Simulated assay, not measured.
Amino acid sequence: MHRILFVCLGNICRSPTAEAVTRAKAPHLALDSAGTAGYHIGNPPYGPMQSAARPRGYDLSGLRARQFSPNDFNSFDMIVAMDADNLRDIEAQRPAGNTTPVTIFTPDGAPVPDPYYTRDFDGCLDLIEDCADRLIAGLSRTDDATR
């Protein structure tokens, strides 16, 4: 089983949405999400993000924000950042000698725009759905190659 952590800034828009979308598409994966900042610890995902996700069949209401921790490197097989700033903040906490892969969610390394600021919740969902499909397909190819 793959253990994957999605990480954004506050863990109220992009990363919980990536967690919920990927879980819906691949329930066999062990998924979680976190934020590099502690602004929203314990809060549910942002209301407008939940409202955009709900009609597509994604329920974010049970998720709660938490802050990324260096211990996450030992708890997950892969850490997926939503943008280069998140990636940099994650890498700054990497324990010495740890080799857990950290990558940006999009295949071209472009950021997943933060709808908290852009207000484009549907565009963010479109991109996250596409990236989740690509991630799952990549994991399947890797699994097939190792069998």
Rank of each mutant, 00 (worst) to 15 (best):
A84W: 01
R3I: 06
D83K: 05
T106N: 13
D133N: 12
Y58I: 11
R23V: 04
P113K: 02
D120Y: 00
Y58E: 09
P45Q: 02
S15E: 04
S75Q: 14
G42A: 04
A65D: 10
M1F: 00
R66L: 04
N71P: 07
T36D: 03
V112E: 04
N86D: 15
A92M: 06
P107T: 15
S51T: 11
T17D: 03
A52G: 10
S33Q: 04
H28P: 09
I128T: 10
F105T: 11
I90E: 08
N98Y: 01
A37I: 05
R54H: 08
T146V: 15
I12R: 05
T142C: 02
G97T: 15
N71M: 06
A20I: 12
P70S: 08
I90V: 15
P55V: 14
C124I: 08
T146R: 15
N11F: 00
G47N: 03
Y117C: 02
L9W: 01
M78L: 15
Y46H: 13
P111K: 05
L5W: 00
S69N: 13
S15D: 05
M49T: 15
C13A: 03
F105N: 07
D122P: 04
T100H: 08
T103Q: 12
R23D: 06
A52E: 07
Y46I: 10
C13Q: 03
L63E: 12
R54D: 10
C131Q: 05
Y116I: 07
A132C: 09
V21R: 03
D122R: 06
I104R: 06
G109K: 04
M49V: 14
I41R: 04
Q93M: 14
T142P: 07
C13F: 00
Y117S: 10
R94L: 07
A53I: 06
N43K: 07
P27R: 03
G62M: 02
P70N: 09
L87Q: 14
A145R: 08
I136H: 10
K25W: 00
D77K: 08
F76G: 12
R56C: 03
Y58S: 08
A110R: 12
